[in-house]
């Protein structure tokens, strides 16, 4: 199994705009991935309500029995999250890097409509390069 299992990008209203699977067994169908994305969006919001102190920005890391989920939320409310093997390092920097790719190849694309599913060839290309294991190791210098 690859270190990174899947990547999701959710827009600010909880809709899934990008999903890519990197070899988890039993690929999810489209409906399930959409449901999981909006479920994550709401749980992220609820976790802020339950904070014991002010200034909570939602779940950053969820540690499950068989995977870790790292989530990064941009200032505009777009959420990026990766599902990876338990204990995988340097996921924060990878998410920041994916965010950079998103701003460069998606937001600066004049044909991209905001909050709509991402279909940008250059983004896909650069993303698959970034996800490759050696690149992940490199990012965590």
């Amino acid at each position: 199994m690859a270190a990174i299992c899947s990547l999701f990008i959710i827009n600010k209203s909880g809709g899934l705009i990008f999903y890519k699977d990197y070899g988890s067994s039993g690929r999810m169908d489209t409906n399930d991935s959409l449901r999981l994305a909006s479920l994550w969006h709401s749980m992220h919001a609820i976790s802020q309500q339950l904070s014991p102190v002010v200034g909570c920005a939602g779940i950053e890391l969820l540690e499950a029995d068989t995977f870790d989920l790292h989530c990064f939320q941009s200032l505009t409310g777009t959420k990026f999250f990766v599902v990876c093997e338990p204990g995988t390092q340097h996921m924060e920097s990878l998410l920041k890097f994916i965010y950079e790719l998103y701003t460069d190849y998606v937001l600066k694309n004049p044909f991209y409509e905001m909050e709509m599913p991402i279909r940008c060839e250059l983004f896909d290309l650069n993303l698959s390069q970034a996800i490759q294991k050696d690149r992940v190791a490199l990012l965590g210098r």
Partner: peptide
């Protein structure tokens, strides 16, 4: 409610299980 939903989320997300 959060714990209940998180549990169903992780069950569905589990990359090591097909069923």
């Amino acid at each position: 409610g959060l714990l209940f939903s998180l549990k169903s989320f992780t069950t569905k997300m589990d990359p090591s299980n097909v069923e």
